Amino acid sequence: MRPIACLLAVLACIACVFAWTKEDYEIFDLVSALEAAEGKGIDFYKHVGVDPSASTAEINKAYRKKSLELHPDKNPGVKNIQERFARLGVIAQILRSPEGRERYNFFYKNGVPKWRGTGYYYSRYRPTLSHTLLFLVLLTSAFHYLVLNLNYRKHQRRIDYFQNAARSSAGVLGVSSGQNGEKVTVPVQGRRRKVRVPMVEGSDQGGTLELVVVGNDVFIPHGDGTLEPIAGLAHAPSLSQTWFLSLFSSLYSKGLAKLPPSIQDSVPPFLRPSDSTQEADLILDEEEVEEDDGSTIDTPTPVNRAQRRHQNKKSKTPSANATPKDSPATTELESGDEGGQKKRLVGGKAGAARRRKMGLKK
């Protein structure tokens, strides 16, 4: 029944669109122009000066009288007198025609419709190329924002699943004393556990994801020893993320970057491209993380991405106090042999030569 009802509704809309003819559109235009020029509530009969039941002879007589009043030669300098005189002739022609008068009487009794069909508006207000492009940009941007919103909700539900599953595996979730028995978050201070959560809810065949639960917060551990909050992976969409505004912002930033520094400094702050916000620093004390099997490991310290890049660069930069490979300076190195004894080795070229000789003697 529902598909049939939808089909009937579509057919009714199509019938409404094609219900009006070209002559009807002409009547609509005349009614609007007459009310705009002569005043609200003026109809064809009042404008000509006859009753709705007047005969064709009475309409012709009243038209000749009215046309003398509105003739441009007798009204020099009057604004829009020629348009008023031409409109009077078209109205009289409709009233003198049996078909035209019958069609006008229908709208005279029932009123002129407010929605006059897409064909009427398209023929009167035909869009230009700029209007078409603007409509397409707005339409595609709206669909893009809708897709972003749907993806955000999907990712948020996914994150909620991982958070709840990780907290449940870590023993953070408990059953409340309510009648419905719903699960509520029970804060456990200072407790940290590394858990594995199935990628697919209710099935371990799709693999597992390793997460770290710190109190009520859930983190994703990285190989460089950092923790990233899983709750911050989903970002709410905004209009600036739609394709057109994003493209405009990118082109504006690139164009502004190519300008001289003096011109860039003169740009107001609100017109400058905003820098991407960095993630908030989260420093945790190094404590032990409890594994599911009872073993303990060191908890990595969460840092932001900027600190991570700084640490990588710092580790690659050679230290100023580092001793060159072939430096004659002596350094004391301690190494344990098989017997557990320690012996002191002298560095530099002389020490290397001495060790080679000792090796040959042995």
Rank of each mutant, 00 (worst) to 15 (best):
K22E: 15
K22A: 13
E23K: 08
E23T: 13
D24M: 03
D24S: 10
D24L: 08
Y25T: 09
Y25K: 06
E26S: 08
E26H: 10
I27P: 02
I27S: 06
F28C: 04
F28H: 05
F28T: 06
F28R: 09
D29C: 07
L30H: 03
V31A: 08
V31N: 13
S32N: 13
A33P: 02
A33G: 04
A33E: 11
A33M: 12
L34D: 02
A36K: 13
A36T: 14
A37L: 13
A37N: 11
A37C: 13
A37T: 14
E38Q: 10
E38Y: 06
E38W: 09
G39M: 05
K40F: 14
K40Q: 14
G41R: 15
I42Y: 03
D43A: 05
D43P: 06
F44T: 00
F44Q: 07
Y45P: 00
Y45E: 06
K46R: 08
K46P: 05
H47T: 07
H47Q: 15
H47W: 14
H47G: 01
V48K: 01
G49F: 07
V50L: 01
P52C: 06
P52K: 01
A54M: 02
A54W: 02
S55H: 11
S55V: 14
S55C: 05
T56Q: 11
T56E: 12
T56K: 14
T56G: 06
T56I: 14
A57F: 14
A57K: 14
A57T: 15
E58A: 11
I59P: 03
I59W: 02
I59R: 00
I59V: 15
I59T: 12
K61V: 09
A62N: 05
A62S: 09
A62Q: 03
Y63L: 11
Y63G: 04
R64T: 10
K65N: 04
K66Y: 05
K66M: 06
S67T: 05
S67H: 14
S67V: 07
S67N: 10
S67G: 07
L68R: 14
L68K: 08
E69G: 11
L70M: 03
L70E: 02
L70D: 05
H71I: 06
H71Y: 03
H71E: 09
P72G: 08
P72Q: 03
K74G: 15
K74Y: 15
N75I: 02
N75M: 03
N75D: 01
N75R: 10
P76I: 00
P76Y: 00
P76T: 05
P76A: 00
G77H: 01
G77P: 00
V78E: 12
V78T: 12
K79E: 11
N80T: 08
N80Y: 09
I81W: 02
I81N: 01
I81S: 04
Q82H: 11
E83K: 12
E83V: 09
R84P: 09
R84F: 09
F85N: 10
F85A: 08
A86G: 13
A86T: 15
R87S: 12
R87P: 02
R87T: 12
L88I: 04
L88Y: 01
L88A: 00
L88V: 01
L88Q: 04
G89P: 01
G89Y: 09
G89M: 07
A92R: 12
Q93K: 15
Q93M: 07
Q93P: 06
I94K: 06
I94L: 07
I94D: 01
L95N: 00
R96E: 13
R96Q: 15
